[in-house]
Nucleic acid binder design. Structure first.
Lengths: 163, 163
DNA sequence: CCGCCTATTGTTACGTTATAACATGCTCCG
DNA sequence: CGGAGCATGTTATAACGTAACAATAGGCGG
């Protein structure tokens, strides 16, 4: 296993497990930090985990309607704000979409791989990239607060399919 | 001078000069590669260079209206598509906005610093970050095509102002 | 238990960003 | 000339996101 291991999405994995453990991590963190994982917040997080891909806010709204419990845009955006601020989900700027965090609980600066063919979104653990950005910022006396790193290209499968 | 030198925006610079040279570089590149820097495309590039900051498409439209030559959204988005595809401008995903490229002509994978206080957008030359992303992608057998790197935080000035 | 405070959610309406689809014009070249 | 291909104009609408205010719910001191 390397520092980039487990880029959620490149390999098969126990889906039910990752879903359960992510929810559990969210509950634990909320309990520990006095945050409330309310019904709507939990619902949105479950949807993100269920589909296990990047979803737009309106895609979430569609899913909520299909579940028989429709909601309005502000409801979803508020839930997403909560999830993102607390590290349970991330926004993919390039796609205007959201994914459940693949490493909840760990404090991390996420970096993503986006497949332009199949739409896969994989979250990397990449110490190296975070370090490089931090170093560049420091050299310019820039106080880094957040970083967006999204690499686009072809995932191994799609790359193969084109050969 | 380091590899991160000249992050356009941190230092004073000859504005008229950078504007002229960017336009010249665009013309040269177009001539060399058989692209046409048409009136609308040139207009949008000039506006980006004139304001020398990140501008939204509708901000550009406002400017065009004020110039007495109004245009419609598709016109601007098409010009921006051209400029971005050919490396004369970049999209800042985090801001849904566009900036003129600070290093036109050079083939590069841009990385940006965004000041969350004053709105400054600086384009870094950062070999290091590009390398780190490339390495991470390679390790996962991911065919990197494009990267989005946007570091948010406080620029030196704003950081100082808070001290 | 009650009433109050605060956080969360509901609801309506709207602002901002981006694109589809089709018509028109422009230019280069045979 | 004429048509092919690219660029632009034009209209309409899709997709993404938020402001503002009302209603509700859940915890806590009295």
């Amino acid at each position: 296993m390397t520092e980039h291991s487990d880029p959620l999405g490149f390999t098969h994995h126990d889906h039910a497990h990752c879903r359960e453990s992510a929810l559990q991590a969210a509950e634990d963190t909320c309990a520990r930090e006095g945050l409330s994982l309310t019904k709507q917040r939990r619902r949105v997080l479950e949807l993100l985990l269920r589909k296990h891909k990047a979803m737009g806010a309106y895609e979430l709204l569609d899913a909520m309607r299909e579940d028989g419990q429709p909601a309005q845009p502000p409801t979803v955006y508020r839930a997403l704000d909560f999830l993102v601020s607390n590290g349970f989900a991330h926004k993919i700027e390039r796609l205007n979409a959201f994914v459940a965090c693949a490493h909840p609980g760990e404090r991390h600066k996420p970096a993503f791989l986006l497949c332009s063919d199949c739409g896969l979104v994989a979250e990397m653990r990449s110490q190296g990239i975070g370090e490089a950005v931090r170093a560049a910022a420091e050299e310019l006396d820039f106080a880094l607060e957040r970083m967006v790193v999204e690499a686009e290209g072809l995932c191994p499968q799609c790359r193969g399919a084109r050969a």
